[in-house]
Amino acid sequence: MALSKITPEQVRHVSLLARLSLAPDEEERIRANMDEILGYIDKLNELNTDGVEPTAQVGDPGMAMRDDVVTNHPDPEAMLANAPARERGYFKVPKIIE
């Protein structure tokens, strides 16, 4: 199947979408793995699925809803305790907009 031939350009495009830098050797290894795995996955095309409804969920239908009310109490110190960098009660990140 032509679809499952993954090029280095595709790997770079997908890694950008996934926000995942890859070292050149890792890029090539992942490309080869994806090629092999997608080649295997192509066997799904042996099956005729015309008119078959897709399955997204397999649990009980009609998942429970609750009233939209606040049930937890804000605790900024607990929420910020794991922050890699913080300043005055905020998460700190590098500048986003010039």
Binding site: L44, L47, T49, V52, P54, T55
Partner: peptide, 12 residues
């Protein structure tokens, strides 16, 4: 080609 196809096979 991949995700939707897989969800249909999941039904089967």
């Amino acid at each position: 080609a991949y995700y939707l196809k897989a969800m249909k096979v999941r039904t089967l």
